[in-house]
Design a protein around this nucleic acid. Structure first.
Lengths: 130, 130, 130, 130
DNA sequence: GTGGTCTAGACCACA
DNA sequence: GTGGTCTAGACCACG
């Protein structure tokens, strides 16, 4: 498992870890049933404190991506089926509204943005096909 | 000028102000040459600290949306023409990568996301037509 | 005897086992004199550690639900008659106080809660009638 | 604000704090807009670490009871209107199922339990009337 | 002056 | 050996 963090980023480390792991799940590099490294090991590998990793794992659990299993440690629950709910959609719209407003001002057309979205989906789906 | 902030949000107020003003520029409610309210006035209107508004204005200037002018005060530079640069595109792609990964895991299709982008662009462009 | 445990639950497995067995006694599916499966067998059936089952059985014995008997193994003592003591009542009140406070805040009326209690009693008593 | 914790309880301290504060909101001793003590102050008053209080506050925020406000600190949002949702009802039923099973075995009738629920509601509602 | 983040290090419950 | 809890103490972002 390859997780990269930028210790100097203004994005909190535990958020970076969360995002990286969600990214790995999206790309299919982490699949349902896969084990995540123990908090202590990942913390040691990344050279950070175990509590920081712990916080990331707990958020991932809250969001339904992973589960703690006393016997097996931390396991991936996989992509969540049937979660495209209305409330999630509204949340996403709120996020995109800010992004779209800013990049609309920077002269990006709707096609520019949709092309990037397509590229990102292509990346994800090709990974799975391999 | 109507700016709404949510004092209880976990988004910092100065970021909210920045986003709101960018949103107004995107919608065309603030156009090139328009004056922004003085820092003190906006702070008073919103019931917040003067430094908070100042911080938002400084970011907006750094990003090229506004300009400080001793005679005229703070003025809007408007939508920036020809800024859809390669570096901005990479920055946007980085932002969208995190968003797309997460919502791909939540079972949103590329069409779901592109539809939202379209809706947001429609909102912006209709405002301008008015 | 059907015991279901959820290995991913945050409720410890030994507590789940205890609760399940108490539930079976309540429903009348386990009656006074019935034999519980040997620790090793239940552990094997559930695919868990022997010590975990042992811990559950020990708690059940402490609370007076079962008894260890060298000849007959582990036997159910059944529903305990005349145990609605004042101290148990206070203990129950303490438990319910936390629950009621929380769900009162979540806008549940006393009738809402009492209706659920009735449903649960109906479930238990119908099982016995069968 | 009077919060009592039992440092020797097997209930985690942060859960005790959460429960106590929910209890105060239920009793009406904490109302919408009221300020909660700063984490450091409450921690000092209780003789515990600030992180423990912090954890309790964060859970309360997640559950919608309080909000962090950079200007005013931590404020109570009050009893949550319209939250008697179906999913909450199922969660409550799960909690009560375990309780009811156990106390049914201990010879508590449905009336015994419903009487306690009534007493607890009386306590809460009388507090509000005062 | 508030909560947020991060570190360092301890002991415990569970399986 | 896993994550959970708690402590102690530091610096930072925000307002």
């Amino acid at each position: 498992m390859f997780i990269k963090i930028d210790i100097n980023s203004d994005v909190p480390i535990y958020i970076q870890i969360k995002n990286e792991i969600v990214g790995l799940i999206a790309k299919g590099e982490l699949k349902e049933g896969d084990k995540l490294p123990p908090v202590r090991k990942l913390a040691a590998d990344l050279g950070i404190n175990l509590h920081t990793v712990n916080k990331a794992y707990n958020i991932l659990r809250q969001e339904g991506f992973i589960s703690f299993n006393k016997k097996k440690g931390t396991i991936v629950l996989g992509r969540n089926i049937n979660k495209a709910s209305e409330s999630e959609k509204e949340k996403l719209k709120g996020i995109l509204r800010t992004v779209v407003s800013e990049y609309y001002c920077k002269n990006f057309s709707r096609e520019d943005i949709k092309e990037i979205v397509d590229q990102l989906y292509d990346e994800l789906e090709n990974k799975i096909l391999v």
